[in-house]
Computed example of a mutant assay.
Amino acid sequence: MINDRGNSVGAMPPAVDIPFRLAWRSSGVRAGAHRSRQGGTGGLFKDHVSLLDNPDPRRIDLRASARDPLEALRVRRFEQNSAITAYALVDVTGSMGVVGHTSKISLAADLVSVLAASARRIGDAFGIIACDSDVHGELFQRATRARAGEVEFAAELRGLTPNRRGVEGLIRASELIAGRRKLVILISDFQMSSQEMEDVFAALSPHDVVPILLRDSAEVEGLPNWGLLALRDAETGRRRLVAVRPSLKTRWCRVDADRRGRLRAIASRHGREPFEITDVIDWDRLASYFAGGGI
Rank of each mutant, 00 (worst) to 15 (best):
N3H: 02
N3C: 14
R5K: 14
R5A: 13
G6E: 06
G6P: 14
G10N: 05
A11C: 10
M12P: 07
V16F: 06
D17N: 09
R21K: 11
L22R: 12
A23F: 11
W24L: 00
S26C: 06
S26R: 02
S27N: 07
A31S: 11
H34P: 03
T41E: 15
G42M: 05
R59T: 12
E71G: 07
R74Y: 08
R76N: 15
R77H: 08
F78K: 05
E79D: 10
A83H: 08
A83N: 08
I84H: 00
A88R: 07
L89V: 15
V90W: 06
D91M: 09
G94E: 03
S95T: 13
G100Y: 07
T102C: 12
I105N: 03
L107A: 08
L111K: 07
S113A: 13
R120T: 12
D124M: 09
A130M: 12
C131D: 04
E138A: 15
F140T: 10
Q141K: 11
R142Y: 03
A143E: 09
F153G: 03
E156V: 01
L157M: 10
R158M: 13
T161P: 00
V167P: 02
E168V: 08
R172D: 14
R172L: 14
A173C: 04
A173R: 08
S174T: 08
E175R: 13
R180E: 14
K182A: 02
I185F: 08
S194A: 13
E198P: 01
D199G: 02
A202Y: 15
S205V: 05
P206H: 01
P206K: 01
D208M: 01
V209M: 01
V210C: 02
P211A: 01
I212N: 01
I212F: 06
L223W: 00
L223I: 04
N225A: 04
N225D: 15
L228W: 14
L228G: 01
G237D: 02
R238S: 07
L241I: 15
T250H: 07
R251E: 14
A257K: 11
R260W: 02
G261C: 00
G271M: 09
E276N: 02
G292D: 09
G292A: 04
G294M: 09
